[in-house]
Design a protein around this nucleic acid. Structure first.
Lengths: 304, 304
DNA sequence: CTGAAAGCGCTTACAG
DNA sequence: CTGAAAGCGCTTACAG
């Protein structure tokens, strides 16, 4: 050992991996919407990246990071070639497209964890925040402030199960309050400022009557805020606004954005822990992480 | 080839790496200031991470990402163990501490690129933005708006060569305008909102007379902005403010932050290209990337 | 140009 | 419990 230290000996990773059949490496695949421009990575996933990197390091795993298009052919690239022992999939995007890819991973016997939607057939291999609860919390907050005509921005189609679950929470909160959801107050929006901006324009220019907006992400909310302000609507006086995620930008905009905070630190740690469990063939359960309301100034009523 | 395709054959990375003595992998080490809290990663480096990931993928290299403390023992972990063919080092932090680490890398024959300061002894292995030019540009912008008493926030000691270079640019611009830099208008600040906040408090509470501030980063500027506003100073009416980096938050704060934009897309691509050059024993030159002024509302004079 | 052999540096399974 | 041997799956250098 002393001599080894003197000679600065290091175990050759390739040789060790070849013999022992594992690499002690996790591959993190980030899927970007093809719509977003190159330089802009979703800040929420960036925050997840940080906590995943920390969690992997804590478990002595190396982390391979790669940005992908969902359409790319990435299924075999990592585990089949023994580059990584397991894969973490991060990204919105149409989950219907995932089906085929996940089947390919399954067939290859790959170990993987998906962040986001709870997928029935992939029990234990998905982890997400409780989106229904998040949608309910933001809606209840607006209701508690006396708002009644609450719009919803986010694509609630089956291809976007996370946004859809948030919509279900919104719907449930309204119904509990005796309010029937009004479809004319819903607008599809993907996760971008621009989508939020356009959705609000469509709402206002379409003559919709609303006093609050629940959004599916802070990015959408920030775009919505900009549109509202340009159209002469005051936030929160005329319209209350709630985001989702609590990305750093949420606290920088004016007024500060009330939002639903996702615990990325916990999420990253659980993704890594569960994946390592799967790698070691332990049985692992899917789980939901509870998000929580963070009150700033965009809804009024509460001081910062 | 057909059979291989049918059987979904993949080359085993470990075996290939063992035999051919290279891994086609780059390790990206991000150094965090011990001072910043866990969850908050410098947004500028996060943006670099994105462009490095893209550039590595474009050159068919895998990217290993790791967050480190500068004090950790990371020198041998990557290249000596054949995990990676080369290393990219990203981070502020006291570069005086780097010396020893870099020597260890050199002794091990490692290939590496450092982002940031130009280090004489490591020609070709460092790449940075032209910080002197950046500091000069922001100061000249303020001078052109009629500002005369321009404060400077950022640690300008030798341990922080990037901030120091920005200070030199500030100094040069002032002298060219016939103004002698006033040391009582300079405050050390590390790269954080909190440091900017405290520095402005110290300036104002110390009775300093200033009508503009040049900062070494957007994070510092955002903290400074908050302090100014809390102390009843209007930006830009009473005090003009310039940031550095152009992180996403710069456009979210109110007023939008005029800043010096670093071209992270180009920087990431050049870091990767130069590193691959070093790996292939090609000779590579150090370079400076020219930053450019982005005008928003925090200096006044110019409309958004 | 083609094809078989050597060997990269480990870890594990096995013989003593 | 200890120590020597086998072999992981490639790529390269070499023989034909």
């Amino acid at each position: 050992m002393e001599v080894a230290r003197e000679l600065n000996y290091r175990v050759d990773k390739n040789a060790a991996g070849l013999r022992s059949r594992h690499s002690n490496t996790i591959a993190l695949l980030l899927f970007e919407d093809s719509s977003t421009d190159e330089s802009q990575i979703n800040p929420f996933f960036l925050s997840m990246l940080g906590s995943i990197a920390r969690a992997a390091a804590a478990s002595d795993y190396d982390l391979l990071v790669s940005f992908q298009q969902l359409s790319n052919n990435w299924q075999g690239r990592y585990e089949a070639s023994n580059r990584a022992d397991g894969i973490i999939l991060l990204g919105y995007g149409d989950y219907l497209n995932y089906g085929e890819k996940l089947r390919a991973l399954d067939e290859g016997g790959a170990h993987y964890m998906i962040w986001g939607p709870t997928i029935e057939q992939h029990d234990g291999r998905s982890l997400g925040c409780d989106n229904v609860s998040g949608g309910r919390q933001s809606t209840e907050h607006l209701l508690s402030l006396g708002r009644k005509r609450i719009a919803f921005l986010g694509d609630n189609s089956p291809g976007f199960p996370e946004f859809r679950a948030r919509y279900f929470g919104y719907e449930a909160a309204l119904k509990t309050a005796g309010i029937e959801p009004d479809p004319s107050l819903q607008r599809d929006a993907e996760n971008s400022e621009n989508a939020g901006y356009i959705a609000v324009q469509s709402l206002v220019l379409g003559g919709a009557d609303f006093d609050a907006i629940v959004t599916c992400s802070d990015l959408i909310a920030i775009g919505a805020l900009r549109a509202l302000q340009e159209l002469g609507k005051h936030v929160p006086e005329d319209v209350s606004l709630v985001g989702f995620d609590d990305i750093p930008a949420a606290s920088y905009v004016n007024p500060g954005l009330t939002t639903i905070r996702q615990d990325t630190l916990r999420a990253g740690a659980m993704l890594v822990d569960n994946l390592i469990g799967l790698i070691h063939e332990r049985s692992v359960a899917s789980a939901l992480i509870e998000p929580r309301l963070v009150v700033r100034r965009s809804c009024g009523g509460h001081p910062r």
